[in-house]
Write a protein that binds this DNA or RNA. Structure first.
Lengths: 63, 63
DNA sequence: GCATTATGTCAAGTATATTTTACATAATTC
DNA sequence: GAATTATGTAAAATATACTTGACATAATGC
């Protein structure tokens, strides 16, 4: 399912998908797919996203 | 680096690596490698491990 | 002592996360 | 209204998570 927590945390920081992708050193498509909920990122990428958005794993990736 | 939080949470439940592997439906080697800190599991596997050990992502995988 | 259990590790294979390139659309700004 | 920005999506290639099978060792219990 979609990750709306991540999408709104990104919006709160006024970052585009592309901005966040660059910070996390992944492609824009990867960020897009994670928000869309298509797939299953690695924990290191999740941690990188959390740090960029000033959130924790539980806040963004725990149900 | 080693994931000692995970190792001790597993010990607290009195589960072997093999037990936990079966619960999470992965191989024993995968559990071993995660505890050893060699690698970068997917978030879905992390969540599965957390549930098996009654912990959250922040408790086991946040620094 | 022997059998069993728990763990470490390695090599080769398979599944899948991620990249790259590309095209499409809606919103915004000049 | 043309240019730019943000996003969705798709196909082919590459990197890497994970499996399988195997062997080694230490600890425990009979």
């Amino acid at each position: 399912m979609k990750n709306l927590k991540m999408k709104s945390a990104r919006a709160a920081k006024d970052l585009s998908q592309d901005d966040l992708a660059k910070i996390c050193k992944v492609s824009r498509q990867t960020i897009s797919a994670i928000e869309k909920g298509d797939y299953n990122p690695t924990i290191n990428l999740c941690i990188s996203i959390c740090k960029a958005l000033d959130k924790t794993l539980d806040e963004l990736f725990w149900e």
